[in-house]
Design a binder for these strands. Structure first.
Lengths: 204, 204
DNA sequence: AGGAATAACTGAACAATGTTCAGTATATTT
DNA sequence: AAATATACTGAACATTGTTCAGTTATTCCT
């Protein structure tokens, strides 16, 4: 069935055209600031066309979020090969925070916007998240098994680490450093120092 | 000028009528799901009336956020009197996380929605935040001064604590525990245990 | 007390949004 | 070449935030 294959390919290409334009707009203008009509105008199609490829705005947004997550996961590419689990953990933290601080708009789309996801979509997302979650789990486990940290409960340590790194990113992206009387650049340094300091304190 | 005083009072009352209705709707439906027209219908006024009291939707939302923050600060009322700085710190963390986990919609409005705030409004907000920020700063400082913790840098410790507690709340409200394979109730317990565990580890 | 001035409120109107769908053009099959 | 299936259009609908000329209520002045 060569033709139906090509059809499928064309469908994918069209999807890509849409999502490429949408991605830029969502990044720049956020969820509320992006309109399907403007996306349509940008790619020179009628607004109705988008609905042939995406059920609605949220379905499109879901794919945008997925792309953000894929980019985030890509930021880990240099880290996965690190042998020493504790070093790996350290670099994971840096990679996570570096990506988020350099792509605050991405962070916003990924975490600071809760669109009402259907249960089905949640399952879908689980897959993307699953990798990142599993990666942290394994690294933390190795750290504990090899007695590289002064913690013993795997889940607690995972929560602590994820909570801390994610929280620091949130504070940064939300500009919560302003009421603390810090500048953006200061805060970036402090956040890194904070992570390093924290690591030193959980080191066995 | 008794009359103009009463006018002002009436203006405030009208504001309260609007904001009371709006608060419920924002909490239940979120920012996008709340329309000024429905607020107007609820309070049995015309849509235009709201614009006599609020410049636009964001100005109204700003006051909604402020109310959320006030409620959050209120949750600290039992904590401020605690003498021992380290105990106070512990209870502050609990109060912060308890409030946010019990009022996830509030948390959403406060932190998970960035409306474009004018610089003026930012100044305004600084005041509300200032208290909470100052309260944490003082407590952390006292902990360090009295050598109750094994940390020495005040800013770093503040970031660490705020990042951790805030991050844990974010994970909870975003339901990030799902890809971790945890239930909501489990996570609530784990988060508390995580905080307690963390405190034990920074204790001098 | 009654007319003038001020304030409060209305609701129709506007532009922009998400979304749908009958109709048109294009491509594929027979 | 005709019939069928697919891709696309753009007008239409309901809903949104927002404005503003006009109406109603209130306060002020003499």
């Amino acid at each position: 069935m060569g033709i139906s294959e090509r059809k499928g390919r064309e469908k994918d290409e069209m999807r890509k055209i849409i999502i490429d334009a949408a991605f830029k707009m969502f990044l720049k203008e956020g969820y509320v600031g992006t309109s399907l009509r403007e996306i349509a105008k940008k790619i020179e199609y009628s607004p109705g066309t988008i609905y042939l490829y995406y059920k609605d705005k949220d379905a499109l947004f879901f794919d945008i979020q997925a792309r953000c997550f894929r980019n985030l996961v890509n930021a880990y590419s240099d880290v996965i090969d690190i042998k020493n689990p504790f070093d790996r953990l350290r670099q994971m933290g840096y990679a996570y925070m570096k990506f988020n601080m350099e792509n605050p708009q991405c962070f916003n789309l990924m975490f600071l916007h809760n669109s009402p996801l259907t249960e089905f979509k949640k399952e879908d997302r689980m897959e993307t998240h699953g990798n990142a979650v599993g990666f942290l789990r394994d690294t933390v486990r190795e750290c504990i098994e090899n007695k590289l940290v002064n913690r013993s409960d795997e889940v607690l340590l995972r929560l602590e680490i994820w909570g801390l790194t994610h929280g620091l990113c949130t504070l940064f992206v939300n500009k919560s450093y302003e009421p603390m009387g810090l500048t953006k650049i200061q805060t970036e340094k402090y956040i890194k120092a904070c992570w390093e300091n924290y690591l030193n304190n959980i080191k066995a």
